[in-house]
């Protein structure tokens, strides 16, 4: 069953059409990747699905509920959240306070403590720096904080917008390991990435977004070996697709 179903989603910025009626779905337990060049509309898609920017037309169904017109904070309370592009942690708050904000809708103190514990086990760096102002963390640490903050609501569907952006290759590997772990522990994941080879490697299914339209779709492997994708996103035809 589709956990998230987006149908004919259209988004305009003024008179400019940013999304020209895109449709895709994310099934429960999948990792779905959406790849595309800069300006293809990836972030627009993410923000409109979660209710941060208005939709012109189309529908979004999450977990059987129509969330097309729902406001963002209500959508999040249904168990779907997003790690936004550029991380967007609260720079003036401490690491702890950021995590507290992540758990804003969690009233159960016991659950909050458990989740905090598991975040600190997964990311010992964050535990060390729990009282540090978040703006002083390194880029990698900020990305980890942003992901941990989103995990505090125990999302059923986690949307990640460019989690590898601006990070050193070793950190990129680490982030993708974490995504795999989260997926293994039962979180459904929608991943938007410019790093197409990585994104296709871990994806069950994937879509290619080009100037506001979905032009290709298939399993991660299919897309990774398709000529078009290899030429446009994987750095030419010499690239060996992941086995």
């Amino acid at each position: 069953m589709a956990l998230l179903e987006v149908k004919n989603l259209e988004v305009y910025y003024g008179v400019i059409c940013a999304l020209k009626g895109i449709s895709f779905e994310v099934n429960e337990g999948e990792i779905v990747s959406l790849i595309g060049a800069n300006g293809a509309g990836k972030t627009t898609m993410m923000q409109s699905v979660v209710g941060l920017i208005p939709k012109r037309s189309g529908s979004v169904i999450y977990d059987g509920k129509d969330i097309t017109k729902m406001s963002c904070h209500k959508i999040v309370q249904l168990g779907m959240t997003q790690v936004p592009e550029g991380r967007r942690i609260f720079q003036e708050l401490t690491v702890m306070e950021n995590l507290m904000m992540g758990a804003y809708t969690v009233r159960d103190q016991q659950r909050y403590k458990e989740d905090l514990q598991s975040v600190f086990e997964r990311f010992p760096r964050l535990a060390e720096r729990r009282n540090q102002i978040a703006g002083t963390l390194s880029g990698g640490e900020q990305q980890m904080l942003a992901m941990s903050r989103a995990l505090m609501i125990r999302p059923k569907l986690l949307m990640l917008d460019e989690p590898s952006m601006g990070l050193a290759p070793i950190l990129v590997d680490q982030i993708f390991e974490i995504i795999k772990e989260l997926h293994a522990s039962g979180t459904t994941i929608l991943l938007v990435e410019q790093n197409a080879s990585k994104a296709l490697e871990i994806a069950d299914r994937a879509y290619v977004l080009e100037t506001g339209s979905i032009t290709l779709s298939g399993t991660g492997k299919e897309l990774a070996s398709s000529d078009e994708v290899r030429k446009a996103y994987l750095g030419g035809s010499n690239h060996t697709p992941p086995a």
Binding site: Q47, V50, G51, L52, S71, C72, H73, V76, Q77, T81, Q82, P84, R88, I89, F90, Q91, E92, L93, M101, G102, Y104, T105, R149, A150, I153
Partner: peptide, 11 residues
């Protein structure tokens, strides 16, 4: 600090 990020926390 960040209205959109705050909404993503369910605020």
């Amino acid at each position: 600090e960040d209205r959109d990020a705050a909404q993503l926390m369910g605020i």
